[in-house]
């Protein structure tokens, strides 16, 4: 399959308001996305995901590097690029005082589609996204999930080759998230390439054919979710002691089946070869030292473990830190 997005050493920095220093939001990102793929950009808030995507969607001028989208050079032919892409931003951008149908009609006509074709397309898409019954209502009265689905319809009405989505399920309840995931997968079935940013591990895991983990404006690692998780061989044991006591370091270093240990707050994370065999041994050791475990869990490696391994931080924690 041929590459439909080719970014080479993309860079972007912003001047901080009122100060002379600049912030490098994207620091040399190189990636290539194949036709028909769902590609996820996973990282904590402020990692540069949105900035990167805004460069690819012609919304932000590129400081350094090159990007070829659907065969067109971003810098020289932004107008051509716009014809071939759709974009659903995080805040959405549906016209609230207008009806869903008016929104869609305008969007289609702006791409030069004939009114009759637009109407046909609206009929088809809104059936698919299950918003056909809301079409003549003012968008302001839509629920969060309904509005998001309308905005996706707005992004794909003109049948773009690539759909860019920024944090597509932020602010949606679990049921609506699962529903939207199904819709995004259906788009892939129709042959569309989807590039999405997310800070949700499960979202990237569920949707992405391939993903890049981004931190501080750089790609830390890239690959299919399965491959990435294979970097973490074996199983993961999470252990918390009663009264929040720390696990003695020498206790763990004596265990040859523990590949790596980390602490995440009061929880100790052990990466082991075979969790089922390791657990009884660990329990025995704890008993000998008269330590009591409050909670123990045996898990398959997750993308968070990959993130932790690559950056030394947990994605869940960085997310919390940012929102404070």
């Amino acid at each position: 399959m041929s590459a439909i997005i080719e970014a080479r050493e993309l860079e972007k920095s912003f001047r901080v308001k009122g100060k002379s220093k600049t912030v490098e939001a994207v620091r040399g990102v190189t990636l290539s996305v194949s036709e028909g793929e769902i590609y996820a950009f996973l990282g904590p808030n402020g990692a540069g995901k949105t900035t990167f995507q805004r460069m690819l969607t012609t919304l932000l001028p590129i400081d350094g590097g090159t990007a070829i989208i659907a065969g067109f050079d971003m810098k020289r032919k932004p107008g051509e690029v716009r014809k071939h892409i759709g974009y659903v931003s995080q805040i959405g951008g549906a016209d609230l005082p207008a009806t869903g149908r008016e929104n869609l009609l305008l969007a289609g006509q702006l791409y030069g589609m004939k009114r009759r074709d637009v109407e046909q397309k609206i009929h088809e898409l809104t059936g698919l996204l299950e918003i056909d019954e809301l079409l003549d209502r003012i968008v302001r009265t839509y629920s969060g999930g309904q509005k998001r689905r309308l905005e996706i319809a707005l992004g794909i009405l003109h049948e773009p080759e690539i759909l860019f989505m920024d944090e597509p399920t932020t602010g949606l309840d679990p049921q609506n998230r699962a529903n939207l995931w199904a819709h995004i997968k259906a788009l892939k079935e129709r042959g569309m390439t989807v590039f999405l940013t997310t800070h949700y591990l499960d979202e990237a895991d569920e949707l992405a054919d391939r993903l890049a983990i981004i931190d501080y404006g750089q790609i830390v690692t890239e690959g299919a979710p399965k491959e990435l998780k294979k970097q973490i061989s074996g199983d993961v044991i999470q252990l918390r002691l009663k009264n929040g006591g720390a696990l003695p370091q020498e206790l763990l270093s004596g265990l040859d089946f523990v590949n790596e240990t980390r602490t995440d707050g009061e929880t100790v994370i052990l990466y082991v070869g075979d969790g089922a065999k390791a657990l009884p041994i660990i329990f025995d050791l704890l008993k000998k030292r008269s330590l009591e475990a409050e909670a123990v869990s045996l898990l398959q490696p997750s993308l968070d473990d990959v993130f932790l391994k690559q950056t030394g931080r947990s994605l869940r924690d960085t997310g919390k830190g940012e929102s404070k």
Partner: peptide, 11 residues
């Protein structure tokens, strides 16, 4: 509300 951004992505 993101309307401008959405329109600016169109040709």
């Amino acid at each position: 509300s993101g309307v401008i951004e959405r329109l600016r992505v169109t040709p």
